[in-house]
Design a binder for these strands. Structure first.
Ligand SMILES: [Zn+2]
Ligand SMILES: [Zn+2]
Ligand SMILES: [Zn+2]
Ligand SMILES: [Zn+2]
Lengths: 129, 129
DNA sequence: ATAGCGAGCGTTATATTGTAACGCAATAAC
DNA sequence: GTTATTGCGTTACAATATAACGCTCGCTAT
């Protein structure tokens, strides 16, 4: 049983869920000034918890955060992100096959993976026209 | 023909080449105070050039930089990194097969990739014991 | 019940990472 | 030679993230 979220955690998750793209920690903070968020640690602590429970993801190449939109995310071995440089849109994808290739490398090299980051930067189909 | 590197670019590359792990921009700066590096822009400009020419890589999940140690790096479709959380060691690997899986996804989704980030965080074989 | 524990909170201050913008110097192109 | 380009050195600043403190609340072992 995952515990219920606290007020701050809910505020941050709601902000990310309503956004149509990734948000920086500080833009989340700005959005929530009126609901009682006053300082970075409050946002970062909420983000940390939400990351741990898998409700949101961090995009390392953007220093930004996004709500998970894949209901089956936790059941996938690895998750990748395709980030459009033009419109900012982010697509989350499940790397089922990629995961196998990575596992091969890990096994060959005796590396025990705790977290995998896969991020593609480029141009999405709509933006290519 | 790649142009010759400037003095600052050479200093930064040498620092990264001699290091036995990734370095932050500011630790490079500290290392080079005595050789004339005085302020962040000098380091960041050198890093930018070295990244563009493929002589170094940026580790997004670490906000750090590392000299490329794969002589064939440019000929590989994608490069991945395995980062040990315990000893800080970084292994660069060529993702030949992974690249094919990614390309499938890109083709299926009409996504034009410009840069691919693959970073594994975990425990390396020596550290597992 | 109550004392202790753990998680989260609100706050202040600070650390770390990265850029904008300026004028100048060296170099390459014409 | 004149003119673009590229990089340099500098100041100032923006953006991202964390340390540390004391407090409250809910749980739980005694
Ligand atoms: Zn997800
Ligand atoms: Zn797009
Ligand atoms: Zn390389
Ligand atoms: Zn290790």
């Amino acid at each position: 049983m995952g515990k219920a979220l606290t007020k701050n955690q809910t505020l941050v998750l709601d902000t990310l869920s309503k956004a149509d793209g990734p948000l920086s920690a500080y833009s989340i903070l700005d959005d929530l000034r009126d609901e009682g968020m006053q300082a970075p640690p409050q946002v970062y602590r909420a983000l940390e918890k939400l990351l741990k429970t898998g409700l949101i993801h961090r995009l390392e190449s953007l220093n930004a955060y996004i709500a998970c939109r894949d209901p089956d995310c936790v059941s996938h071995p690895v998750t990748g992100f395709a980030i459009c440089e033009t419109c900012g849109d982010v697509s989350e994808f499940a790397g089922e096959k990629i995961s196998k290739q990575l596992k091969d490398w890990e096994d060959d090299n005796g590396f025990l993976v705790e977290k995998t980051t896969i991020e593609l930067r480029g141009i999405c189909r709509p933006c290519k026209g």
